[in-house]
């Protein structure tokens, strides 16, 4: 098998167009087979403006068609209407866009959505269990771990990972391992308190 699946190159020749139209027809019928075919022929694949993406968000499987340049953050917010994840800086500098991919916290603004094929993404919307808030969400409310709330979804996603990673053994360690989440309102002391309470509660989160 060849190794590439590709997309985008809007300069369609007639030959490309023919390939595209027949491919698009085929795509509607047997997606997997044709995507395999596309993997065999970079030129065929390159007539697609959009690339197929299959992944899971908050336990729900999605099969989408996206432009390669779309970040995971923009896909979640603009196309999937999951606006809980925030865009602060869009350059990896603030942590507002923190989500979990396969259980690990990352900045979704520097993540290309197309690279998430087969991955499991969790956003702030996927943290609560129905109407029952996640213990970290409860702790943030109890300790007033926010003021305007803009950084909060990112803080909470980061905080959950921080505890799960085992990086919440002391307030000092929490401050270091939460440094990727900036809070312009300066709610830091309360955020640290909230995380320490969840950690000291000892429950698996």
């Amino acid at each position: 098998m060849e190794n590439e699946s590709a997309s985008h190159a809007p300069n369609g020749s007639r030959r490309d167009f023919l390939k595209q139209s027949s491919l698009l027809t085929a795509l509607a019928l047997t997606p997997t087979a044709v995507i395999k075919a596309a993997e065999n022929d970079e030129e065929i694949a390159s007539v697609f403006e959009k690339v197929p993406l299959k992944f899971e968000v908050n336990g729900v499987k999605h099969s989408l068609s996206i432009e390669p340049r779309v970040t995971l953050l923009d896909l979640l917010r603009e196309q999937m209407k999951l606006t809980g994840t925030k865009k602060g800086c869009d350059h990896g500098q603030c942590g507002a866009c923190t989500v979990h991919i396969d259980g690990r916290r990352v900045n979704s603004c520097l993540t290309l959505a197309v690279m998430q094929e087969g991955k499991k993404v969790t956003t702030i919307e996927g943290l609560a269990n129905g109407d029952k808030l996640h213990p970290m969400q409860e702790a943030f409310i109890k300790h007033d771990g926010f003021q305007c709330g803009y950084c909060t979804p990112g803080q909470i996603m980061s905080a959950v990972a921080c505890v799960r990673e085992g990086h919440a053994s002391s307030p000092e360690q929490v401050r270091e391992y939460m440094s990727g989440n900036i809070c312009r309102c300066g709610a830091y002391p309360n955020i640290v308190d909230a995380i320490m309470e969840v950690k000291n509660g000892g429950n698996k989160i």
């Binding site: 190794n3 590709a6 985008h8 190159a9 690339v51 390669p68």
Partner: peptide, 12 residues
């Protein structure tokens, strides 16, 4: 916009 290629082998 750019073309996206997913490489499955080092050589490719």
């Amino acid at each position: 916009p750019f073309q996206y290629v997913r490489a499955l082998k080092q050589r490719s």
